[in-house]
Computed example of a mutant assay.
Amino acid sequence: MPETWDYTLYIQNDLRAVTICRRTVRLILTMHGLIGLVDTAELLAAELVANAVRHTKGPAALRVRRSPEGAVWIGAWDTDPEPPEPPRRLDQVEDLEEGRGLGLVMACADNWGWQPSARFGDRGKYTWCDLAIS
């Protein structure tokens, strides 16, 4: 059975949190010897956290864990309990400045989804994805 671990970083609703989360994911994966996943995981975390802080007004959180099945799970919690906008295929948004986030997640992750969840006493949701460790 693979080693499991779980980290949560609570963040303010501030776009600077995206950079903090990218670097946090890089550090976590590097310290656990998963350097091969770092670039993709950073991108995925940045997209999920950017959506959380751009489209909601409350606090947010980044969660990174290694599941018992061996996948790396990355989730961003926010205070909006509504499902995220459906992702658009990347070829439909290649010229747009915005609207590519979940399309990138869908293209780069092995799985993705969302689920209702409460934190800080607020209703909200986790938008998540996972990466298989090869």
Rank of each mutant, 00 (worst) to 15 (best):
R22G: 00
C108P: 04
L90Y: 10
D80I: 12
D91G: 11
T127N: 00
W77R: 06
N13E: 03
T40G: 01
D95H: 13
G101F: 05
W73A: 11
M106K: 10
P87Y: 07
V64M: 09
M1S: 10
G121M: 05
D91M: 13
Y126T: 04
D39V: 08
V25E: 01
R23P: 00
D78W: 15
A71G: 07
V25D: 01
L44S: 05
W112V: 01
A50H: 09
I35E: 05
G33K: 10
T56D: 05
W77T: 07
I20H: 02
E98N: 10
E94H: 14
T127C: 01
E47D: 15
E47T: 10
R63N: 14
M31P: 03
G58W: 14
A45D: 02
A50Q: 08
I11L: 11
A45G: 04
Y10C: 07
I35T: 07
L131G: 01
G75I: 14
L44H: 07
C129K: 04
P81C: 15
W5Y: 11
D6C: 12
R63Y: 08
G36V: 08
R22N: 00
T8K: 07
E94A: 14
S67W: 03
W77M: 05
W77I: 05
D130N: 06
C108S: 12
F120I: 07
K125F: 13
E98G: 10
A60M: 07
G99S: 08
A17S: 11
A76Y: 06
G36D: 09
P87Q: 08
M1N: 07
R63I: 11
R88D: 07
T40A: 04
V38G: 01
W77G: 05
T79E: 11
D95N: 13
L62D: 06
A132L: 09
E3H: 03
T56M: 06
G113R: 04
G103Q: 08
A76S: 14
E97P: 13
P2V: 09
E3K: 01
A71R: 15
R16P: 00
N13G: 04
A118I: 06
T8E: 05
R16A: 10
G113L: 03
I11K: 01
P81T: 15
A132N: 04
G103A: 06
T8L: 04
W77C: 04
D91Q: 13
G58T: 11
W114E: 06
D95P: 03
E47C: 06
A61L: 03
L29A: 00
T8S: 06
R23H: 00
L29D: 00
V38W: 01
L62V: 12
W112L: 02
D95E: 13
V53Q: 07
G121N: 08
L90R: 05
E94V: 15
L44Q: 08
